[in-house]
Write a protein that binds this DNA or RNA. Structure first.
Lengths: 418, 418
DNA sequence: AAATTATTGTCAAGTTAATTAACTTAAGCG
DNA sequence: CGCTTAAGTTAATTAACTTGACAATAATTT
């Protein structure tokens, strides 16, 4: 389904996937670009014409334009009988973009080409508590390192996308009221990024970008109603509904971590009681393990002495067959499953993609979730929902940032060239 | 934000509000119509031009067209300094449409003019268990009665919108797997309606239409992230997100009634345990009252002897000051509040509109909901959400059906006239 | 009261992006 | 080799928009 859009500003939503500034005239060019970008199969001019309900002649003209500006290139394709269609794809060599994912404890930067393929990558341990200026500094360091090391011409970088672990006011590109990010509130991040680097920049919530990344390049291709659940230190989710990212009225949609599971449960970091995060986050898993060890239960985790047990330790132990670790993870999955079931009942998504560190263990974590969803939702709903792990693993969000950056880059280029 | 859209079929999403068949050419005409339809203030040509980022001349041409076809008319408007703008509005006398709401126990039909104003209305007690054919028969009876009684020319009716209490496959216009509607599964309702009456028809879930009705004519005007919660015999909700109705992958989004509140609570009609409906539906309220009376608690409800107590009785009693009835409703509100809090956390809507019979009691029901939402959501979220009763009362859904019918009528007319 | 300023709406000429219908290209097949 | 099928191109035409000048109408200033 293809939506064209124009508005005063002008915000354009093309095939909900891209939101772009556009004067409203060259709209079909933008739609064609997105069609080529996000197609899972090979696309020819005729197919584009059919999908957009335009004449072949019109598409020929548009594609000519795109070829000339270098955004798109032709490839070979094979079909039975009749003239072979010429497949089209985004020209990966036309330029590059950065995708940045800021987490509760890390900073990850991906350099990708226009085809969305990874060119170089760097991840460091980082605490966002240092504030936005320091973070910008770090991003500057990493991006220039990546440019240098990857034989990239600095002028070939066209945009930067960024994700942060908190609500984002997408209109102004600010972080708003972030629980994890004191000192970031109201900081005009998009503007500062643009000023500092000279590239157009976008800002989104990290879970939101996870959904987008998995939709564009991961497990959720073609699935226009997708929920991405990120189980890291905390638990968050990104919603892609009706083919569009949904951020809510204030940019804080998807806050599944602070849904009430047990009315009078233990106190959560957010101040409420019995939140999901108390039972099913990386933090919770680590705490459970710690508790169990102190109670003297039999586990390899007891060997960790000097430092405190981390969720990662529990995952590793589970992978190596430690029963206690496995049980802790299974239980976390069960609790998460209850929340996911509620979410699935409410949103009836076509797919739920589990991301974040904890999910990488796979079925041990997925199985209880699937079970709970099946048990606790209407059959119509549970029958239609696929629940899987993120295909992009720990890169979901950063790749989502790449998608946003590409949207900016491609569509801006299109306007400039015109 | 204005989206234009075209696709093979061609489905067009205009200012997400209307989904219309359109050849993709006269698109801006459709956008202008919707702009005029849904504007809360008076609109002039210049304002339209500014909002759509088109030239004044272009709008003049488009409006000329709309004036000539009679869809739009001019009115007076007053502004300071400069030539007075000529305000535009949909010409209410251009035609009429029907909005039909089928509930678990009633059938409501509204006849409205092109301005969405109520011309005539009829509601009867009705059990959808009789099956779709019988229901069509009843609709035929009522519509012809309304046409006759309201001095309407049958040829002035241009479309019919309908809502049903179950999931709808909007693509094919069928009811799908409805828990409350055995015998309706897979019935091609839209097609049958069109065949039978000769009007184009639309089909949606009733809660969805409640959201749309309140958004267009009710409490939620201008609010593009709105949740409508219908508390009737059961509990359902309609989601209007990013300015669009969201139905989910299989049309069953919004099933808040079967969210798990208590892990091992009483068995629900759906087979699971501890669902919201067990605690906060009309059915639940009636049951509680019955229970209390049998336990000999002091209440005016004890006076009801021969028939069983209904939710309506409890509402009436509460309105007249009966303490027990008030408490039952307050408690139902509290339970509902927990579910609403989860929903608000997850979707961060700008507004929650409470509809359905139970909500008509007002603050007694709203207050516990507001309290629970405030207590159980992140401050960013709860601060931004307004929680109110439906402005259209028991007409929300039927008016939503009118909105859908008008969308069909106006935009089809536009294509034909062209 | 006349002149000034602001704003809306219209007109005519020019531009752009689409359509239509004929045509070319490129493959498979009997 | 010619026939069939499908993809892609070309040229003439049409519809929708832009631009810039201008008329209409009101409030404000002189």
């Amino acid at each position: 389904m293809y939506n064209k859009g124009t508005q005063a500003g002008v915000t354009l939503i093309v095939n909900p996937r891209s939101t772009v500034n556009c004067n409203g005239k060259s709209l079909n060019r933008h739609i064609v670009v997105d069609l080529i970008r996000f197609s899972t199969e090979q696309v020819s001019r005729v197919q584009i014409a059919r999908q957009m309900d335009l004449s072949r002649a019109a598409i020929t003209a548009i594609v000519d334009d795109l070829l000339q500006s270098g955004i798109v290139r032709e490839t070979e394709a094979h079909y039975p009988s009749g003239r072979r269609p010429i497949s089209l794809e985004i020209n990966p060599n036309r330029g590059r973009v950065f995708g940045v994912d800021l987490g509760a404890s890390h900073l990850q930067v991906i350099l990708a080409d226009f085809g969305g393929r990874l060119i170089a990558e760097k991840e460091i341990a980082y605490k966002p508590e240092n504030g936005p200026e320091d973070c910008l500094e770090k991003i500057a360091e990493i991006t220039s390192t990546l440019i240098a090391e990857s034989d990239t011409n600095a002028s070939d970088v066209y945009a930067l996308g960024m994700g942060v672990p908190g609500p984002v006011t997408s209109l102004t590109g600010q972080v708003s009221n972030p629980p994890i990010l004191p000192g970031w509130d109201g900081f005009p991040l998009v503007q500062e990024l643009t000023n500092r680097f000279g590239w157009p920049a976008t800002l989104n919530n990290d879970a939101e970008l996870g959904a987008l990344g998995e939709w564009a390049f991961g497990a959720g291709r073609q699935e226009n109603n997708l929920v991405y659940i990120k189980v890291g230190t905390g638990v968050g989710s990104g919603l892609l509904l009706n083919g569009q990212l949904y951020g809510g009225a204030a940019g804080s949609a998807g806050e599944i971590g602070h849904i009430t599971l047990v009315e009078n449960g233990p106190v959560c970091v957010c101040g409420n009681r019995g939140c999901l995060e108390v039972y099913a986050s990386g933090r919770a898993i680590a705490q459970r393990a710690d508790q169990a060890v102190r109670q003297g239960m039999s586990t390899v985790l007891s060997d960790i002495k000097n430092t405190s047990i981390s969720a990662k330790d529990v995952l590793t132990a589970a992978r190596f067959g430690d029963r206690l670790a496995q049980q802790i993870i299974y239980e976390a999955g069960t609790h998460l499953g209850v929340a996911v079931a509620n979410l699935v009942n409410l949103l009836n998504p076509g797919m739920v993609v589990m991301g974040g560190g904890v999910s990488q263990i796979g079925d041990l974590f997925l199985e209880p979730i699937r079970t709970m969803v099946e048990r606790r939702t209407l059959r119509v709903v549970s029958k239609g929902v696929r629940i899987t792990s993120a295909l992009l693993g720990r890169r979901s969000s950063a790749m989502g940032a790449v998608v946003q950056a590409l949207t900016l880059a491609l569509h801006n280029l299109l306007e400039v060239v015109k």
